[in-house]
C-alpha cells in the first residue's frame, strides 16, 4: 500500500452520478428542442442560445470569482432554459440582461446552487417580461420557416410576423394541433415543438432525474381546466384541453422548469400538489388575466410555496402505525 488508508462512515461506495453529470443530462435533454428551434428560426435562434448560455456562465464566474467557466454546469442550464423562453430574435442586450438577472438575482444572492428559492431562468424571464414587454410578449412573433438554416443562413426571421396561438381564439383556431406537436408555430424558442420537448423529457425520465408527478399534475390540470373552462373551440372540449397543453409554454414549463430540482418539493405528495398548483394558476392567468401566458408566474408562485408544501407533506415513515383516536 502506498498512501494512508481512508476512514469514512458507511456506505463506502457511491453512485457515479454527480451534480455536473445531472446538469449535462439536462443540457442533453434540451438538445432536441434546441435543434428544432434552430431549424425553424435559423441562425438568430442559435445566436440567442449561445449568448444566453455564455453570459449566464460568465455571470456566475464573475460573482463567484472563479476561472472554471463551466463549473458544475448549472449556469449553462439556466442560460439555455432562459433562451428557451425568449422570442427567436430578441436584441442581444436583452438576452445578456436576462442571463445576468437570472444568475445573480435568481440564484447567487440566495447562496448559489441548491439554495435558491425560485427557478433562476424564470426569474430572469419574469424581469424581462415586466421590463420589456414589447420585446418579450408582444402580439407579433416571427413566423417559423422550417430548415431556414440550410436554405438561407442569414435570413432575418423577424421580417414576417404573426401572433402566437395563445393571443386569442381566432389565432388558436388558425393553429392545428399537429402544428403544435411538430413545432411549426410562432412562439418562444422552447415553445415550438411539443414532440421535441417530450423526447428530451423522456431522456431525463429514463435517467431518473424527473418524476412523473410534477409534469403529470401540471399537464393534467391544464388539460382538465382547459377542457372545462377553455370555451370548447375546435368543436370539442377535449381538443380544447389538448390545445391548452400543447400551445405556449406549458410543456416546456411542466417538463423542464417546474421539475427544476432545487425549487420544487422533495416529497412525492408535495410534487403532485406543486404540479397541480402550477396548472391551476397557469390556467387562471391564461383564461382571466391580462397576460396571454401564465407559466412563468405560476411556477414562480409555486416555487415560493415549496417550503410550505414540503413541510406539510413529510411522508409517513415505513411501518408507521396510524394513530387511533
Amino acid at each position: 500500500m502506498n498512501g494512508k488508508l481512508v476512514i469514512s462512515s458507511s456506505p463506502h461506495i457511491r453512485t457515479i452520478e454527480s451534480v455536473q453529470s445531472v446538469m449535462i443530462d439536462v443540457l442533453a435533454a434540451l438538445f432536441p428542442v434546441a435543434l428544432i428551434a434552430v431549424l425553424l428560426f435559423g441562425y438568430q435562434a442559435l445566436l440567442t442560445m449561445v449568448i444566453a448560455v455564455i453570459s449566464a456562465m460568465l455571470a456566475e464566474a464573475i460573482w463567484m470569482r472563479k476561472l472554471d467557466i463551466f463549473g458544475d454546469g448549472s449556469a449553462a442550464v439556466t442560460g439555455l432554459l432562459l433562451a428557451m423562453t425568449l422570442p427567436p430574435a430578441p436584441p442581444w442586450w436583452l438576452v445578456v440582461v436576462g442571463s445576468f438577472c437570472a444568475i445573480i438575482i435568481g440564484k447567487q444572492v440566495f447562496g448559489g446552487i441548491g439554495n435558491n428559492i425560485f427557478n433562476p431562468a424564470l426569474v430572469g424571464r419574469a424581469i424581462l417580461v415586466v421590463s420589456w414587454g414589447g420585446h418579450m410578449a408582444g402580439q407579433i412573433w416571427p413566423v417559423p420557416k422550417p430548415f431556414v438554416i440550410f436554405s438561407d443562413f442569414f435570413y432575418d426571421i423577424s421580417a414576417v410576423t404573426t401572433a402566437t396561438p395563445l393571443a386569442g381564439q381566432e389565432q388558436a383556431l388558425n393553429t392545428s394541433l399537429s402544428q403544435l406537436l411538430f413545432g411549426n408555430v410562432a412562439g418562444a424558442l422552447g415553445e415550438t415543438s411539443a414532440l421535441a420537448l417530450l423526447v428530451g423529457a423522456g431522456w431525463l425520465f429514463i435517467k431518473g432525474h424527473i418524476d412523473w408527478r410534477i409534469p403529470g399534475g401540471y399537464i393534467g390540470t391544464v388539460f382538465v381546466m382547459g377542457a372545462a373552462l377553455g370555451g370548447g373551440f375546435y368543436g370539442n372540449h377535449l381538443l380544447t384541453g389538448l390545445f391548452h397543453v400543447l400551445a405556449g409554454g406549458v410543456l416546456l414549463g411542466a417538463l423542464f422548469m417546474a421539475t427544476d430540482m432545487v425549487t420544487s418539493p422533495v416529497t412525492n405528495l408535495g410534487k403532485l400538489i406543486f404540479g397541480i398548483g402550477c396548472g391551476v394558476i397557469t390556467m387562471l392567468i391564461r383564461l382571466y388575466g391580462s397576460f396571454p401566458e401564465g407559466v412563468t408566474f405560476a411556477i414562480l408562485i409555486m416555487n415560493a410555496l415549496t417550503p410550505i408544501i414540503d413541510n406539510f407533506t413529510i411522508p409517513r415513515k415505513f411501518g408507521e402505525v396510524k394513530k387511533s383516536a
Binding site: 447562496g111 441548491g114 418524476d211 432545487v262
Partner: peptide, 15 residues
C-alpha cells in the same frame, strides 16, 4: 450543496 434532487427521498426504504 444539496440540489434537492430528492433522489435520497426516492431511495430511502423507510420513507
Amino acid at each position: 450543496t444539496c440540489i434537492k434532487c430528492a433522489k435520497c427521498v426516492g431511495a430511502c426504504p423507510v420513507n
